[in-house]
Design a binder for these strands. Structure first.
Length: 229
DNA sequence: GCCAACGTTGGC
DNA sequence: GCCAACGTTGGC
């Protein structure tokens, strides 16, 4: 099982040495863009952590993948939630992530945590269901596979650059939560305050693996049993 | 270490 | 298919 996630990131992205290692530094950086500095983690405003010196510890995630066929170098990138559900044990590895920020978030994931399966680059983008992290970050083998779309010639086995986690399908959302609906809440909350005002899906739109605070996660879950906005 | 050029993401 | 946003690269 080696689902082909779209896992956007630039495949040939190199990086600067500092981004490469220095996990903690990078994770701070990623929440804030170019500003690193201790203050950054506070600025990131993503709580859940209490310590001033350690980066915020998230425990909920949103991971994007494309549910519709799209060919890249002759390979179909399609991997929707139904595809995950169809794998043995409904479990697969989230390979192909080639973006440092997304990678670093995956490295922060802990076994048992929940992640929304988000359908991107399709007719109606949105949150389709929920999955569980069943294996914490380990080496993404596709970086060494020349035939893989996400092959990275610069990464060496003795010092792998990319990681992946294993995820297991948990359940579908009671109803599909579209991006457009989430956006309405986001705009509303941004104007008057509310749980989704800083949601990464909008503030860091292009990140394929992103964190959610407990408040954000719970709010999205609460939408399931309500009428679409 | 700045920043312009370039490439990718992904909604529309 | 367009293109804005933004991450990455590489010249200086």
């Amino acid at each position: 099982m080696s689902p082909k996630k779209r896992a956007r990131g630039s495949k040939s992205t190199e990086h600067s040495a500092k981004d490469d290692e220095g996990e903690t530094v990078s994770s701070v950086k990623e929440t804030v863009g170019r500003k690193r500095k201790a203050a950054a983690s506070v600025e990131a405003g993503k709580k859940e952590s209490t310590e001033s010196s350690s980066p915020p510890q998230y425990c909920h995630w949103l991971m994007k993948s494309e549910p519709e066929s799209r060919f890249e170098n002759g390979i179909d990138m399609k991997f929707g939630i139904e595809d995950l559900k169809g794998l043995p044990n409904q479990t697969g590895c989230w390979d192909g992530v080639r973006n440092y920020q997304a990678r670093n978030f995956m490295r922060q994931m802990k076994e048992g945590q929940l992640a929304f399966f988000y359908h991107s680059n399709c007719k109606e983008p949105g949150i389709a269901g929920i999955m569980t992290i069943v294996k914490e970050a380990y080496v993404d083998h596709t970086q060494f596979d020349k035939k893989d779309v996400h092959y990275d010639a610069k990464s060496k086995p003795d010092n792998p650059k990319w990681s992946m986690v294993d995820v297991q399908y948990q359940r579908m959302m009671n109803r599909y939560i579209s991006l457009s609906e989430l956006k309405k809440y986001h705009l509303q909350h941004r104007a008057k305050g509310g749980p989704l005002k800083d949601m990464a899906l909008f503030t860091r739109a292009r990140l394929s693996v992103q964190p959610l605070t407990s408040v954000e996660f719970d709010f999205v879950l609460s939408l399931e049993d309500q009428e679409a906005l």
